[in-house]
Nucleic acid binder design. Structure first.
Length: 197
DNA sequence: CAGCAGATTGACT
DNA sequence: GTCAATCTGCTGC
């Protein structure tokens, strides 16, 4: 199938969990350092804005870092975690509603040599920090546009059967009280099978 | 302003 | 299993 760019309307929808689930199987393409690298999304987490205690925007919090979460859907939000890892998020919903989807894992499909180089020789891309690093994503890309910017999301026709989609609580959000148990994490059961679909 | 915890990772005991 | 790396932002003195 010919790659098709995901339109802004996909990201502007109001259900962040639906978007997180539908992003599985889609392809992140980054044109950074004059090299094209790409990977199929295999794991995501939804962060549901002001009412979600696990979200950086909980309670309407606005800081220099989180300001881009309030942009319209289809904007890139990247933040530094533990002072080291650049975590890639997709902002969703309309302007001023700070929903976002964290991409936690990818299967590389283009620019593998460059990705491995960025990873210091390692090829694993199954964590939020490692996936972003392989794609060359940096906090300087926070605020860029997914439709026109250096980082885009496309549909390459990779099929993910419902039976192969797993759902569970988010990782590392124990501090979020009851919200820590919400089933907002989505992942592909057999990621390698994506390559042949 | 000091202290601490965090949407993590990888090296080392 | 333990722990350091090291930036952002919150809490409390």
């Amino acid at each position: 199938m010919k790659p098709r760019r995901i339109p802004r309307s996909f990201f502007m929808r109001s259900s962040v969990t639906t978007i997180a689930r539908e992003l599985l199987g889609k392809v992140i393409v980054s044109g950074i350092d004059d090299v094209r690298t790409a990977g199929i999304i295999t794991e995501t987490e939804a962060y549901a804005g002001v009412g979600d205690r696990a979200s950086h925007a909980h309670g309407g919090r606005r800081t220099e870092r989180t300001e881009v979460m309030y942009a319209r859907g289809g904007t890139v939000y990247v933040y530094l975690c533990y002072g080291i890892h650049h975590l890639f998020n997709v902002v969703t919903n309309k302007e001023d509603v700070p929903h976002a989807v964290l991409v936690r894992g990818i299967v590389p499909i283009a620019g593998l040599d460059r990705m491995k180089e960025r990873r210091g020789g390692r090829m694993t891309t199954d964590g939020p920090g490692t996936a972003a690093q392989a794609l060359g994503i940096h906090v300087r890309h926070s605020g860029s546009d997914l439709i026109d910017g250096p980082i885009r999301i496309e549909d390459h026709g990779h099929q993910v059967p419902d039976a192969d989609i797993k759902v569970g609580p988010r990782i590392g959000v124990d501090y979020a009280g009851d919200d820590a148990a919400l089933p907002y994490r989505f992942w592909v059961g057999r990621p390698d099978a994506l390559l042949s679909r």
